[in-house]
Simulated assay, not measured.
Amino acid sequence: MPGTAPSRPSAPEISLNRVPVNGIEVNVATAGDGPAVLLLHGFPHTWRLWTEVIAGLSGRYRVIAPDLRGFGATTRAPDGYDAGTLATDAERLLDALGEPTAAVVGIDAGTPPAFLFAMRRPGRVRRLVLMESLLGRLPGAEDFLAGGPPWWFGFHSVPGLAETVLTGHEAEYIDWFLTTGTRGRGVPRPIRDAFVGAYTGTDALRCAFSYYRALPAGARQIQDAVESHRLTVPTMAIGAHPVGNALERQLRPVSDDLTAHVIDDCGHIIPLDRPDALLPLLTSFLAADLHV
């Protein structure tokens, strides 16, 4: 009818399944058909971090968004939180889903395993997107780290401490990260509640903080990788607040094909804070997959 506003595209149909992978069961959300895009979240998130991204990409791609090891509904494993094991988790998930290759997108704690996956198996990673994280001790992040790493890195790294202190106060703690990570704007209430639920309980917290306790091992794995290989996969680095272009500076000396962007007025949790800015960058960068 004349004057009727165009309808918005319907929400994608998302399937949730538990898939045996590398000795654990991974809870994974999938949507759409086409070339695979694997999305790796960070702390304190689950696959729901990617809600807007899934909606934006699933019309052209098969979007695969797992809960990483120990997070959400994925097995709370006793170990395996180093970047190398997480990279193997990602590769085995693609195997289980019948995908020989994927574009891989990582943010925060999902960035180091995404990077190592591309370094170790470049034939399986068509394109790589890395966001708002640092890669071990690679040069380039000195300005960012001039005042020391963020305060919570040390707090989370002491075995047993943070989960003992925070059990019973998970909601307040997660809310701080969600508010700070969106520059005060917050995230939609259903997603916030899902995140809080996923990180409630001593064992859930233990798994989350195990990522920080495994950072030294991950840093060694990253250093070993760059000493023996270059990053040949076409890569895009995306920064916001607070990491900015520190990740780009780390990647530039070790990459053959690097594009970089910093999103203005955007907090650390880019997929929820500024999906309007992120999605055009992703769709443009991934478009090469549609022409092969």
Rank of each mutant, 00 (worst) to 15 (best):
G106K: 10
F144Q: 05
I107S: 03
F115T: 01
D143C: 08
G136L: 06
I222K: 00
V21L: 07
G34K: 03
R76G: 06
V262P: 08
H41I: 13
H41M: 05
A141F: 15
V37D: 02
A204Q: 08
D224A: 15
W176A: 14
R252G: 02
E172Q: 05
E248A: 14
W152D: 15
G197I: 00
P112W: 07
V226Q: 06
I107R: 10
F43S: 08
I263K: 13
A141L: 09
S157P: 02
L205R: 14
L39S: 04
M236D: 07
P2Q: 00
G160N: 06
V125C: 15
V226T: 09
A65N: 11
T167Y: 03
V21W: 13
T200N: 03
V105P: 03
R189E: 15
R183A: 13
P234F: 02
P35L: 06
T164G: 14
V19G: 04
A109P: 04
P112M: 04
S15F: 00
G98L: 09
L286K: 07
H45M: 12
G98H: 07
S157H: 09
G110P: 00
P159L: 12
D95V: 00
L290A: 07
T75C: 15
V28Q: 09
P112K: 05
R126T: 13
R274V: 12
S255A: 11
W176N: 03
A36E: 05
C266I: 10
W176D: 14
A83Q: 10
P44Y: 00
D67R: 11
G267M: 08
T179L: 13
A288Q: 09
A240S: 15
L251C: 01
D256W: 03
F115Q: 07
P149W: 04
L279K: 01
G80Y: 01
T85P: 01
P253M: 11
T75F: 08
T182G: 04
P159S: 10
A288H: 05
T101E: 15
G98I: 08
Y211F: 10
P149G: 08
P78S: 12
M1R: 02
T75I: 12
T51H: 15
A198G: 12
R249S: 11
P159K: 12
Y211T: 07
L145P: 05
F209D: 08
T283N: 12
Y173W: 12
I269R: 04
L282N: 07
D193H: 05
E99I: 03
H45V: 02
G80I: 06
E172P: 05
F177S: 12
I191K: 01
F153K: 13
C207L: 02
L247C: 08
T179R: 14
L281H: 01
T164E: 09
L135A: 06
L93V: 14
N27C: 01
A29D: 04
E25V: 07
A77P: 14
D33K: 11
N17D: 09
A146G: 14
A237V: 06
R8A: 15
G168V: 12
S157I: 02
R185K: 13
P6Q: 13
R249W: 01
L281T: 01
G218R: 03
L39N: 05
G3T: 02
V63T: 10
I64G: 12
T180S: 11
C207Y: 06
G181A: 15
A260H: 11
R48L: 08
I191E: 04
D256N: 11
V292P: 14
P113L: 04
I269M: 03
